[in-house]
Design a protein around this nucleic acid. Structure first.
Lengths: 148, 148
DNA sequence: TTAATTGATATCAATATAGTATCAGTTCAA
DNA sequence: TTGAACTGATACTATATTGATATCAATTAA
């Protein structure tokens, strides 16, 4: 069971890079090279993140991408939702079988509870938090701002 | 993001049925009909569960399947692992990028922590617990042992 | 003007998921 | 002792999802 697909993985890494260099435009090429993400694939992801108001872009030479939102307001739960769809345990598990003739379905309830736990965990981890964790780890042995 | 695939979903339902009728062999056909699971597909799942020592079978007329383990010792985490593979956040997320030259990787640590939370939640829910929840719900309006 | 860039889309390949078909072997019961 | 009701095993097909590539137009800075 793969929790994060490549799309989400790549998107997080791109955002970490954008979040580490605020105020300047980073090109898709630069991100692709630095993070070892397939160029055209990454561009699709960046477009998708523009549509979701996470980043902005500037066209033309010296153009690129920049964070639009505060990194602390980008939980990875949101990225999972964008690139993998909302967390759902299964389309309508148990419903036909068990919930047909009663209002409340304990199984579905149980399953939904887990769904919420999972989501809340992914909500706690934001791009901002990851950047700080990363800086702290880098700070032990390197100057700040590094990613490798 | 789909947490349970059809395989896991069907397997859980089959086990709930087997767990509700202990001591008798239920045929794949009976389970398939009752639970509305594609017959041959179900048979594959049952074989897989035999291999994992969850159930036993008896061949021939009046044959079928029976639980081998105590329902309380079958967490759905195990079924997810069997039919969808171990829960993993991503193949080796962040490792190349961030962990190359240091022992500890805070990001990976963060991600692994979530992995454990998810797993522990799925460990808490066993087939036995689901059967009891189900019986309790049925008991409110029906005789016990019903599944629909 | 031109090289560096994004916007938009079309296409493709690989993998995973879901489902079907077939045949051999076993067992119960008439 | 035969035949129907079963499981064991395996091969196959269809569809969806994931991962990746290619192309061309439009924009911008130098």
């Amino acid at each position: 069971m793969k929790v994060l697909t490549k799309k989400t993985d790549y998107a997080i890494r791109a955002l970490l890079m954008l979040g580490s260099k605020r105020g300047v435009y980073l090109s898709a090429k630069a991100i692709s090279t630095e993070q070892d993400i397939p160029y055209q694939f990454l561009r699709g992801l960046l477009q998708e993140m523009i549509r979701h108001d996470l980043i902005i872009s500037k066209e033309g030479a010296q153009g690129g991408f920049m964070l639009k939102k505060d990194p602390d307001e980008i939980p990875i739960a949101q990225l999972i939702e964008i690139f993998q769809g909302k967390v759902q345990v299964s389309e309508c598990m148990f419903r036909k079988q068990l919930c047909a003739n009663r209002a409340r379905c304990v199984l579905r309830h149980e399953i939904m509870r887990i769904e919420q736990v999972v989501n809340s965990e992914f909500d706690k981890v934001t791009i901002g938090k990851l950047i700080r964790d990363l800086d702290a780890a880098n700070g032990m042995t390197h100057g700040s701002g590094e990613t490798a």
